[in-house]
């Protein structure tokens, strides 16, 4: 008997989730509807069945999500019989009288943080499990598995706790919370290989399909839901595309692709010379340290 690396990664992730269950009183699993958080749900099933999850699924909805992802989210929660809490950025904007970003490439992605911090306060969550991976981005490559945040949700990269072996220290003061990343050590390809091996269902938009898009700054952006308002110089096209990541419509670009099966998607990802976030995320390309700054502000 010998474990391959996917077995090892799976076991590590299950172990981390159970540490959350054992060390915290009010944890939550942040669920976005994307492949990484769907993988987290699958890992939670492995960690806690036949018992119930010791945490609800929490979705921070920007109001700019793909309908396919939202339907999938509701289906999944119902299918596994676990509690789903949704909090809306829309409501935060209204209640807090926030100024919504305007202009050509406006996105609500940044405002998510406010809604997340409010939800943490509302439910007194002491730990939030998320699907961030260290291979995604250079600031994430530096973060601990148990990432302690102060009462403002803020990450201080210069004051991270030592974290040795598989001993996680989740002791915190009241008001602080911990962000926990069970798939820290997985790469994009590991996630896809695991999805294939475990036959995990995904929203249809991860596979090649025809849709209307507009070309902006060289990126293919979906016109779905009217989130992105076409401007006179935007070119409208219909293309066969898939989404490599599924996030907020306003900042997630599509890739032209014919890959309509898992095998084909994995082949494409293996061959690509562009990183996941580089290909799809507009929000990281704003500045050199965009992710680090967002994390300091309480983001994932």
């Amino acid at each position: 008997m010998k474990l391959d690396y996917l077995d090892q990664l799976e076991s590590e992730a299950i172990h981390i989730m159970r540490e959350v269950a054992g060390q915290f009183e009010r944890p939550a699993l942040l669920f976005s509807g994307g492949k990484d958080s769907i993988t987290l749900v699958h890992l939670a099933l492995k960690a806690f069945r036949p018992g119930k999850f010791p945490f609800p699924l929490v979705h921070i909805d920007t109001g700019h999500n793909f309908q396919e992802a939202l339907d999938f989210r509701d289906d999944l929660a119902e299918r596994i019989g676990e509690k789903l809490i949704v909090r809306y950025v829309e409501d935060t904007i209204r209640e807090k009288k926030l100024k919504e970003p305007t202009g050509r490439n406006a996105t609500r992605n940044g405002l998510q943080t406010f809604t997340l911090l409010d939800a943490i306060e509302e439910f007194e969550f002491d730990a939030c499990i998320g699907g961030a991976r260290r291979d995604e981005e250079k600031a994430r490559a530096k973060e601990r598995v148990f990432s302690v945040r102060d009462e403002f949700g803020s990450w201080d990269p210069k004051r991270q706790r030592p974290e040795l072996w598989n001993l996680y220290n989740g002791r915190i003061h009241k008001g602080e919370n911990v962000r926990v990343f069970p798939i820290s050590n997985w790469t994009e390809l590991d996630v896809w290989n695991y999805i294939r091996r475990e036959k995990i269902a995904l929203p249809s938009i991860y596979f090649a399909h025809e849709r209307e898009l507009l070309i902006r700054d060289g990126k293919l952006m979906a016109t779905a839901g009217g989130v992105i308002k076409p401007e006179p110089d935007d070119q409208l096209v219909t293309r066969r595309v898939r989404f490599r990541t599924v996030g907020d419509i306003s900042c997630t670009a599509a890739s032209e692709s014919q890959a309509d099966t898992l095998d084909a998607v994995i082949d494409e990802i293996q061959a690509t010379r562009i990183s996941e976030r580089g290909e799809t995320r507009m929000d990281d390309q704003l500045s050199e340290a965009a992710m680090e700054d967002r994390k300091k502000g309480g983001y994932f």
Partner: peptide
């Protein structure tokens, strides 16, 4: 370098 970075 201030903190460890992980690469795969």
């Amino acid at each position: 370098t201030i903190d460890v970075a992980y690469r795969y």
